[in-house]
Write a protein that binds this DNA or RNA. Structure first.
Lengths: 139, 139
DNA sequence: TATTGTTATACTCTATAACTATA
DNA sequence: TATAGTTATAGAGTATAACAATA
């Protein structure tokens, strides 16, 4: 079919672009797993340790360690759940919110700049493709 | 401007899709760094240890270890450079070529399947965007 | 002397197994 | 008994520092 194109080529370019974006993070104070936890908490407001471990696909012992570092750094708060004393309730602190905002700002900065350099038709192409890629990522 | 859209949204979806593709690799016998070396050797034919370390952005001691594992597994061959005895010349073996082909096949399989489920207009959108993303990744 | 790669050692992140506290 | 989380311990992967071999 004439409209078909190479799945391989698209896959590779998506992975390459993701690596390029990732390399742009200049502030290296937090590991990927630590950032993942902060973004989870931003999304959900509060989470238990087990929920975070499931979401990030790591084991509970790993999450205990990751959470411990974030508590020590002052980015998240940890307290026993009021309804079930086995559980721990984790929430973002003000400092945690700030570090998320700053990380996002850094990551977006490079990308925004590149987008600004494109033709408007190219931006529209990307906008249309973004929705389709969202579907692919969710499947 | 009405044609502008959120750089943040596009960045996130690219990263999410890349993670999704990556998660699809079912054969977990090789680490990411090991696979990176094999793909480098496929691209360049032969490399020295230092060249591989630079390309993969790791230190020479790390690359010594990675290369050692690949030599032991039989995927690459290691010999002293004929022109400079300080250097080691690394090349792919037949088994190395095979494992690259299989990895690529696995990664493409999931993605091809998802693309087949799209409308042809959606595929055309992605095709157009792929070229633009290539430019972005190269910038 | 400078360069290429290796060895020694340590740190980070992750895992499994065994344990404690609570339901 | 089952569940939530922690502690003990080990295995990858990476780094810096010190070293050996070669240019």
């Amino acid at each position: 079919m004439t409209t078909d194109f190479d799945a391989h080529e698209l896959r590779v370019v998506v992975q390459r672009l993701a690596r390029r974006i990732r390399a742009e993070r200049s502030d290296e104070t937090l590991s990927d797993s630590q950032l993942g936890v902060l973004f989870q908490l931003e999304l959900h407001g509060e989470r238990t340790l087990g929920e975070l471990a499931d979401n990030e696909r790591v084991t509970p012992p790993s999450m205990t360690r990751t959470v411990g570092a974030l508590v020590e750094a002052g980015f998240i708060a940890k307290e026993t759940s009021p309804t079930d004393a086995r559980k721990v309730r984790l929430t973002l602190t003000t400092a945690g919110l700030a570090v998320i905002a700053e990380t996002r700002r850094q990551r977006d900065a490079w990308f925004s700049q590149r987008l600004d350099e494109l033709e408007s038709t190219e931006r529209r192409s990307l906008e249309a493709a973004a929705n389709i890629m969202q579907k692919l990522a969710d499947s």
